[in-house]
Design a protein around this nucleic acid. Structure first.
Lengths: 204, 204
DNA sequence: TGAGAAAATGAATAACCATTCAGTTTATGA
DNA sequence: TCATAAACTGAATGGTTATTCATTTTCTCA
């Protein structure tokens, strides 16, 4: 369960520790976990191979530590933007916008989280289950306040995560030929969420 | 670009070929590409290690072949369900439903496509870009027919893919505590797409 | 200042695994 | 039946890479 990291305390050790983390973040993003060797990481961090094992018991533990770190960063970043808004509509808009901006600024995070599906499936599950739980809490609140319709909020949370993640994916991989201007993307998403997609009401 | 597979022609060779593919599909799903060895695959397929290389020049080429195969299967399956419907609403509903059912029936596919992001990023890009292109064509048609509102259809295609994929994810990984009944899931999704999420119109 | 602790080094180790190939078995059809 | 081709075999090879450890350097504070 724990990552068994020996957190450094002295100034120098902290520098080394962060050099390893930064190098790993960069390389895992560029080449993926499996194609990145511990030697690649130590080289880029400017330290010897053995030094790595003063701080991390294994390559996997480094990966786990990085993932947990990032999931905290994401939550904190989104929460910071969402909490200052009052209406659910505004909260939703700012949350999506914060996520997309974060994805653009640190595309590494995006990849590392998804890759966990192939490195440690439990880690991946935990990440999305707990993210969804938090989302549901907010949505339930909004239902209670009469801001959003009383649809199955758990499913809605996955729908909204799916939208945000795929728009983020489009931005990170620069998919498609339209412009990827963040404001335009958010406008389209919010428009759809507000008014729906269809013009007439079908018979179903 | 090509996978350089020597497609088998005789009865026996075809059996061997499929035994390899089936074993690989199963193992890639269960353990991921990197943790699956060629020996694991040949053992499960009941053949010798060397036989593998009569059909595939490398482990990677097998993976690519599998991915291409599956992306065809997905398109075909969805198209079969969508094409018999006439309204865009019905098409959308059946497309989503077909995808979720497929994900449940063959959870392997899901994993293999996403894993390509860490094995061969171009493959992943191609997959979603071409899927989106096809989606946009359908949406543009529906806009022309006055069935859906004239929002940026490229972005909408990523939104809809995101929704479908995350609902599929929930089903495959059995995330969350609500029931994962397909009809219920599809109902909620379509309800949201039709009526939007919010009750009142905010000031934006 | 200097002794002991903390950090760092990097060559060596050991395990793992994709791929090869020389030889064997099985199928085909004349 | 038998000769040729097609399939198959599996031990051996070679390259890669996570991890170790004996040694050296740097830091700390009495």
């Amino acid at each position: 369960m724990e990552s068994m990291i020996k957190e450094p305390t002295t100034r120098n050790a902290i520098n080394t520790f962060h050099a390893i983390m930064d190098a790993a973040e960069e390389l895992f993003y560029k080449n993926g976990y499996h194609k990145t060797t511990v030697n690649n990481i130590t080289q880029r961090a400017g330290i010897a191979a053995g030094t790595f094992y003063l701080y991390f018991p294994s390559k996997l533990s480094l990966y786990k530590h990085l993932l947990i770190q990032m999931s905290h960063d994401i939550r904190r970043e989104i929460a910071a933007h969402v909490s200052v808004k009052t209406t659910r509509f505004e909260k939703e808009r700012e949350g999506i916008k914060a996520f997309i901006n974060l994805a653009r600024r640190r595309p590494h995070m995006y990849n590392i989280i998804w890759e966990s599906l192939y490195i440690d499936r439990e880690l991946f599950r935990d990440y999305y289950v707990s993210f969804a739980k938090r989302y549901v809490r907010g949505l339930d609140e909004a239902v209670k306040h009469g801001e959003i319709r009383a649809i199955d909020t758990e499913i809605v949370s996955y729908i909204l995560m799916g939208i945000t993640n795929f728009i983020g994916l489009k931005v990170v991989l620069d998919l498609g030929n339209q412009n990827n201007d963040v404001d335009h993307l958010v406008d389209v998403v919010m428009d759809l969420i507000k008014h729906g997609l269809f013009i007439t009401t079908p018979s179903t």
